[in-house]
Write a protein that binds this DNA or RNA. Structure first.
Lengths: 208, 208
DNA sequence: GTCTATACCCGGATAGAC
DNA sequence: GTCTATCCGGGTATAGAC
């Protein structure tokens, strides 16, 4: 939809949202390094000056994308973590969903992990990591029998695992074909189950 | 050391290595997005044309850095995986070393995971992932009693975990102070032990 | 193997008209 | 809220001299 249209030219349209949409499209085609406000403007059929009515600068566009990414990803994760399965399977399902999200919304995911954006400078993103992690917390607490510190460790391990599989998937370690996504997602889920099974090693010094 | 020196100006010096060194320094200061051959040249006190005698283009510099990264990282990992501890602890130590490497050689690590470089277009890097994973293979095989497929799954899980913790460390999830590195490295090691403990869930469909 | 010089293109950002 | 026009800085890459 948002490729060659440039309807009759915008003018009073929802340029702000259109910029974000087109930025996602552009990043999908050329990667983070290929993103520029100028090219986005060109694709929308507006001049390079127009977006500056809606965004202070380039970074604010990226921040807008990052916010979208956090919203959507944490939403997906919460949905997975909240159903009626046993808690360890809710964690596994959330990890699987995490990996799928990275593949299906590659641009958004990349903004989150590889934009070079300083998240601590944008209030809405300051707790981005926290919001992602929070989605895993409830089942983790159940798994850990209410031990909050143990649950936090487990959440960190699950997030790291999901992020790790996502990274490997995106850089081609699972191959290029369509099966790669499901293979990575499934293995991530299995890894989370393994973490839960062996979780005694997560908390203690794991002697021996 | 390599900042304002520009000795008496190079001329017949080892410019190729110097470019790589300075690129690492520059990326350390400004991140991947801040890297340019022009700035590297300036810092070395040579003209922007000089590096082109040693590198076909910008990407070839990045490829050179990536190759260094793979060499150094896989060397570190092999050293950890080859000592006399029990195999599960060799895996854990390698994961810990992986995370430390990401922190101590941040620039190199970022080139590896976030340069946007198409590794499949550079022969020396085509099997970069394989060389990293290979460092984990021996202890994984022992852990898995010789089952090659199970060992491969375990290696993937360990690499993903290490990469995940490294990513979280670098984007600030473990805080900014010096303790962050050791905290992340230690938790990564623990997570690997947990994976080994619960590794039955990695291979099978993990019913129930 | 490096320098001088240059051609070329692109992105960020702003002023002022409409 | 967008356009026109423009400034400014910067990066990539090459040709030809030394």
């Amino acid at each position: 939809m948002p490729k060659s249209p440039k309807r009759e030219r915008y003018h009073h349209g929802e340029l702000k949202e259109a910029v974000l949409d087109t930025a996602i499209e552009l990043i999908g085609e050329r990667g983070m390094a290929g993103f520029s406000l100028a090219e986005v403007s060109r694709r929308l059929g507006v001049t390079v000056a127009a977006p500056y009515r809606h965004f202070a600068d380039r970074d604010e566009v990226l921040a807008g994308l990052a916010l979208r990414a956090v919203d959507e990803l944490s939403g997906v994760l919460r949905a997975q973590a909240a159903d009626s399965l046993p808690p360890r399977h809710r964690l596994a399902a959330a990890a699987r969903a995490f990996v799928r999200f990275a593949a299906e919304h590659r641009s958004l995911y990349q903004v989150l992990v590889a934009s070079g954006l300083d998240k601590s400078r944008h209030a809405e993103l300051r707790d981005a990591g926290g919001r992602i992690g929070a989605a895993f917390l409830d089942p983790a607490l159940v798994v850990c029998g209410g031990d909050a510190q143990a649950a936090q460790r487990l959440v960190t391990a699950v997030v790291a695992t999901a992020q790790g599989y996502a990274g490997m998937l995106l850089d081609g370690s699972f191959g290029q074909d369509g099966q790669a996504v499901e293979a990575a997602a499934l293995q991530a889920a299995h890894a989370v189950l393994a973490l839960v099974l062996g979780r005694d090693a997560l908390t203690g010094p794991a002697a021996g």
